[in-house]
Design a protein around this nucleic acid. Structure first.
Length: 511
RNA sequence: GGAGCGUUCGUCUAACGGUUAGGACGCCAGGUUUUCAUCCUGGUAAUACGGGUUCGAUUCCCGUACGCUCUACCA
């Protein structure tokens, strides 16, 4: 058997975690767990200019919410730490030096201004074999000059020296054979002037040091893969290189292109997993969690964006995903995100979910709305009554608040046109009936009894049930929605039903 | 501009040379629900284009088109 599977998710802590990012985590996690392997979280914070406070914590919180908890991470540690690249700075220098010594890299002293000028002067300028000899670096400067510059701490970077006329290729687990002509790849910066590595060096060094066996990342990384393959070849040997898997992108629903935070704002749906408060702009971007998605549904819908097991099954628990996941069933093409289908997944999961669990998720929303729940068991019961008409957790507010308090808005407009004194008399007698029950000590009554009595009364008044059910419903819940009328009456107290009828009667008579 | 990657109903996708091209979301129609939703039934709708290879191409090859990604001392 091969070495134990180890995969990593390596985000840079610059903001909220995006759908595409979470899906990358998910595929990492599923693959690792499917193979009894380990999933590592590594924070790629090598760009000090883009550091955003709170972002790292946010990432860990988001993974926890999704149930994608890493085995090793900055927070929990592990045998291959530290897990923040900013804390691994000396390690990268060592390997950069090794590359220089081997002749696979060189010092470059060009200032940002030099480069900018060059790019302006030469269209499609590339720092590569085409122009590297026109630049100020250890390939063009004398050894004495270079030593002098180095000794004086002249700002410089280290660049990879990409060989000429070679083919670099890799076997991508998803895409198969992918190859590049080295004449087309440029001499990427490996070590920045501040001593920090760029992504290119860091990812190779850390994947090696952390014994990563499979490296998953978004498709946008494919064009820079040859640099990484070269680095592996020079530093650790191609036989040590992890298997690469470049995941398809998640696209915006309309038009084309990568899904962005802006698309969510424009189209009215979340793009981040959880609410993200950006301290720089002082704004909060809504997340799937806060919008009312269940983590089970979120994970499920993400998994189906680019993967399937070949059957018609669409609803998967995490355990089922782990059991069924395989990379050879990951789609190559990008997937457009469809919010309607996302909500469908959530509705399916709400229907499956325990009522107790739903109650605990709905309770905070009730608190915020000022809806009081006196008996937790009652809330649980109501969840079961209304869950099949809720897609998102906040839907429970409109779908069940009338079980806890009288509706404030009554849709009398739907009753008034066909309202007459006969109906008014009917409801008045209905309240009399209910009052007699409460007078004899009953708080509630079973729905079957309620329905029978109601129908008897209808007959007595020479009316039809059809013309009274809707008004009754509206009196109870405020509008044309909700569970069966008598189920509602059964669950709220009779005195509350009476109060609601009387209130509506009053509204209708004053019209 | 260059390089790489991609392309099956509107959307997510199945079919790994032979199917009336299947399922799901959405939408439409009907039924159930004396409301709404759920649920059930049915309908709508796709292989980008052109060449090959083959008895036979959604599937393999080539080309074209289109799209995307990258082309920073950002990841």
């Amino acid at each position: 058997m091969d070495a134990k599977v180890r995969v990593r998710f390596a985000p840079s802590p610059t903001g909220g975690l995006h759908l595409g990012g979470v899906r990358t985590v998910l595929f990492n996690y599923l693959f690792a767990k499917h193979h009894n392997g380990e999933f590592i979280l590594r924070i790629e914070d090598t760009d000090q200019t883009r550091f955003v406070p709170g972002a790292e914590q946010y990432i860990q919180d988001t993974l926890a919410w999704c149930g994608l908890v890493p085995d090793e991470s900055p927070l929990h540690g592990g045998p291959y730490g530290p897990y923040r690249q900013s804390e691994r700075k000396p390690m990268y220098k060592e390997f950069a030096d090794k590359l220089i010594a081997q002749g696979n890299a060189y010092y470059a002293f060009d200032t940002p201004e030099d480069l900018e000028a060059k790019r302006k002067e030469i269209p499609n300028f590339q720092y590569s074999r085409a122009h590297r000899l026109d630049m100020k670096n250890s390939l063009t400067l004398s050894k004495e000059m270079v030593d002098e510059l180095l000794k004086n701490n002249t700002p410089h970077v280290i660049r990879i020296k990409v060989p000429e006329n070679e083919e670099v290729s890799l076997e991508d687990v998803i895409r198969g054979h992918v190859s590049f002509d080295t004449n087309m790849v440029d001499d990427k910066v490996l070590l920045k002037a501040d001593g920090m590595p760029t992504y290119h060096l860091a990812v190779v060094v850390d994947d090696h040091l952390m014994k990563i066996t499979h490296a998953f990342r978004g498709e946008e990384w494919l064009p820079s893969a040859p640099v990484h393959v070269l680095l592996w070849k020079y530093l650790f040997g191609l036989d040590q290189m992890p298997k690469w898997a470049h995941l398809p992108l998640i696209l915006k629903p309309d038009g084309n292109g990568k899904l962005s935070k802006r698309d969510g704002e424009r189209l009215g749906f979340p793009v981040f997993a959880m609410d993200w408060f950006d301290p720089n702009t002082n704004t909060t971007t809504i997340g799937f969690k806060e919008r009312g998605f269940l983590p089970e549904a979120f994970v499920n819908l993400l998994a189906m964006l680019g993967w399937n097991d070949g059957t018609d099954k669409e609803i998967y628990s995490m355990e089922e995903l782990i059991a069924g996941f395989s990379l050879d069933r990951v789609h190559k093409g990008g997937a457009k995100f469809d919010y309607e289908k996302a909500k469908w997944f959530n509705a399916e999961w709400i229907k499956k979910m325990d009522n107790e669990k739903l109650a605990s998720l709905v309770q905070p929303h009730f608190d915020k709305e000022g809806i009081e729940v006196h008996d937790p068991n009652y809330l649980v019961k109501i969840m079961g009554l209304v869950k099949e008409r809720c897609q998102l957790i906040p839907d429970f507010i409109t779908q069940s608040s009338f079980f806890f308090q009288a509706p404030t808005q009554i849709d009398t407009a739907s009753i008034a046109p066909k309202w007459d004194t006969k109906k008014s008399e009917f409801f008045t007698e209905l309240t009399t009936l209910y009052k007699s029950k409460t007078d004899s000590g009953m708080l509630t009554a079973p729905s079957a009894d309620l329905e029978n009595e109601f129908k008897e009364l209808v007959v007595k008044h020479a009316l039809k049930p059809g013309e009274l059910m809707l008004p009754f419903r509206i009196m109870l819940v405020g509008g044309k929605f909700g569970p069966g009328v008598f189920e509602i009456v059964e669950n709220i107290e009779l005195k509350d039903t009476v109060a609601r009828i009387e209130y509506s009667l009053q509204l209708l008579s004053s019209n």
